[in-house]
């Protein structure tokens, strides 16, 4: 069994309040019931489940959240948001993590590299949606 020292200092608190500002949500409203994760269409693809992401955020563990794949797997289907018993806009919290990263590293997808036959056939809404979620545009 391994143990980890949990520190909630100035840096952690700043991170927490930044995420709360962007999402407009209170992270501590979450009581970790796990309903978001249970209903998530993509739980099996995520390295941190949805409630785990929120738990790490509550503890201000910036590195763990920012290095997780989960916020980028989330497709904003909003099932978690409509089901949360605490009325938290869970998808907005996922979005705020993406936004936080994009405000420092603006490109998660190289737009110029989306080319070829497939790109020609892709619906406009797929391209606009993807670029809006993966770049700061």
């Amino acid at each position: 069994m391994s143990f980890e020292y949990i520190k909630i200092g100035k840096e952690e608190k700043e991170f927490i309040s930044k995420i709360e500002d962007i999402s407009g949500q209170n992270l501590y409203a979450c009581y970790q019931c796990g309903k978001c994760t249970a209903g998530c269409s993509f739980s099996n693809q995520m390295d941190l489940t949805v409630n785990q992401v929120i738990h790490r955020l509550q503890l201000g563990q910036k590195e763990k959240v920012l290095s997780a794949k989960s916020p980028w797997v989330c497709a904003s289907c909003l099932t978690c948001t409509v089901r949360c018993p605490r009325d938290i806009d869970v998808a907005a919290i996922m979005e705020s993590v993406r936004e936080y990263i994009l405000r420092y590293e603006p490109e998660r997808i190289e737009r110029m590299k989306v080319t070829g036959e497939k790109a020609k056939n892709l619906p406009n809404i797929a391209l606009v949606g993807s670029f809006r979620k993966n770049t700061e545009l």
């Binding site: 269409s41 989306v114 892709l122 797929a126 391209l127 606009v128 949606g129 993807s130």
Partner: peptide, 11 residues
């Protein structure tokens, strides 16, 4: 209403 994956089809 199981999400189809939406814009993830791009990348």
């Amino acid at each position: 209403k199981t999400c189809c994956g939406s814009y993830h089809v791009v990348d």
